[in-house]
Design a protein around this nucleic acid. Sequence first.
DNA 1: CTGAAAGCGCTTACAG
DNA 2: CTGAAAGCGCTTACAG
Lengths: 349, 349
Amino acid sequence: MASIGIKDVAAAAGVSVATVSRALNGHPSVSAAARERVLAAVETLGYRPNAVARSLRTDQTRTLGLVISDVMNPYFTELARSVEEEARALGYSVIIGNADERPDLQDHHVTTLLDRRIDGLLVSPTDGGSPGMLAAARAGTPMVFVDRWIPGVDVPVVRSDGRTAVRDLVAHLHGLGHRRLAIIAGPAATTTGRERVDAFREALGAYGLPLPDAYIGQGDFQAESGRRVTEGFLDLPEPPDVIFAADNLMALGALDAVRARGLRVPEDIALAAFDDIRWFVHTDPPVTAIAQPTGDLGRAAVRALVDRIEGRPGESVTLPARLVVRRSCGEATTPRQSPSPSPVRRSTP
Amino acid sequence: MASIGIKDVAAAAGVSVATVSRALNGHPSVSAAARERVLAAVETLGYRPNAVARSLRTDQTRTLGLVISDVMNPYFTELARSVEEEARALGYSVIIGNADERPDLQDHHVTTLLDRRIDGLLVSPTDGGSPGMLAAARAGTPMVFVDRWIPGVDVPVVRSDGRTAVRDLVAHLHGLGHRRLAIIAGPAATTTGRERVDAFREALGAYGLPLPDAYIGQGDFQAESGRRVTEGFLDLPEPPDVIFAADNLMALGALDAVRARGLRVPEDIALAAFDDIRWFVHTDPPVTAIAQPTGDLGRAAVRALVDRIEGRPGESVTLPARLVVRRSCGEATTPRQSPSPSPVRRSTP
DNA sequence: CTGAAAGCGCTTACAG
DNA sequence: CTGAAAGCGCTTACAG
């Protein structure tokens, strides 16, 4: 049962384990003859180096940890995919931890990852800074924040800025005649939770529109909260004209709630979402959304992290998000006036 | 920079490293006094055992590998989530490898995972048996297949049986008057790719309906192939009445293609899918689908794998899938006759 | 109950 | 170019 090790290879090749190791690691000072015999032995024995032993010795695992807020959220799923791709291209593996928007789970994963001595950590923090995360940052583990970040912690952050897109969205909504605009916010403990509300409020302000407290629903970026908040909006004496969900899952929940009441989008109430996903093209109606350059974010985050790991600077990156207009907020009667260059993504031929 | 190790704790507690190790691992023969001092030292130093060193010594990583066919597929995403949950409950971590439906990538992940000496491997094979996978099975790594499996390899398989649900679906379609039924199949190299076609053909046979080759489109479980195949169907002199997509992503592609032609579902062509996802409730129209007990599959798979790892038998499990009727195949004019007990999932109040 | 010592499978100065 | 040896940070028989 004992799988074959470097000693077996050395014996088979008639060299020392040192030579085997050198041959396998591309060390220059190995004779061609020795190298050949080693490779042959490796081949016939089917030898695979034990990565655990190697890591212990070299103090590096060639592994990145990625702690995301919620795997079930297509946005993070896509982020994870691009992270893994870029990491693989750079010679790293990635271990994903799913926090499910729970700080305790996030901490569990950060701790586990650190125990495994990953070379670097990519995090999209679920809250303002759980103890484990802060400890990781302090301990000097190379780290970078993606999408969400923690103010005051000195770590590069790779994210997208939705301010302009939100402004475009509000212009679009205003142009359609909507005046009572509500938002389903993410957790106030997250940067994206706060920023999207701020951007929305600011954009409304430019039109002299208020954002009353009653029109700010507190969600947690998951579908159920979107449903609950939407019901609250619908129960208001004066319900909003539009609901802007701060992520795609809460938009899904909103859709559930609207449908449950037998109401229609956009006739009875309009809907828009932060984070664009493929299904939004086929929902009833297609949902107007703000699209992040998700793949680019994932790749940039990996590059920044690997830079840090390998001793280079590793800088923060901010990429713009953009508005994708569909039908969920109503149709412009005048020749479709998009408020700014906002091409419809994945347009159908 | 050198993080603190067991020696530091031993020094601080005034005991040997052996005692520290025993205290931390709950070994019975440690005096209460020693244990206390160790725990105190651990606390003040913020010591965390190096999992790499421990793994090398104990020859176990308390880690499971999960190689899934495609992370971007919500079905696998949900599977991954339930796998991680159950694993965590049993004291294991899981490392996910995304094969993206590519056998070479699958092999890459299997190899990497094995190099890391994971304790067991959960795989949903992308093809009929890539060399790395077969090697893993042969090498005696505890392994179980989920969802898809490889015939002839002696490994427990945890999956769902859709035969009955497919029969229910065909009954439903037949009842609606559809006679020309087509399928977008998954890769013939996968069991689910083959089984779903077989089940469909068999169910059609019960109604004396044929499944001509022209009505079997070869897809690869990803959206783009669903689009391509659907276009082919639509170009046929006699296009089908119904398209049954063997997974949710190909259904998405089909929706793209139908929409691009300006056709409507179900008026112009009906659509059904294998694998139910939340968005299907809100698509235009809501999509009739076959739902797998995904969470149960994930949990059962982990239990089977951990059983194997810990020396217990570890048995195969097959769970039934079920039909969820929505509007994408047309509305029954007679009082909605569901073909069998097929409650609509997540019904809206 | 406790410690000294061996050893897990590698890599890498150090000599030669 | 090559090998003997030390050592990465733990765990665990073996003595006491």
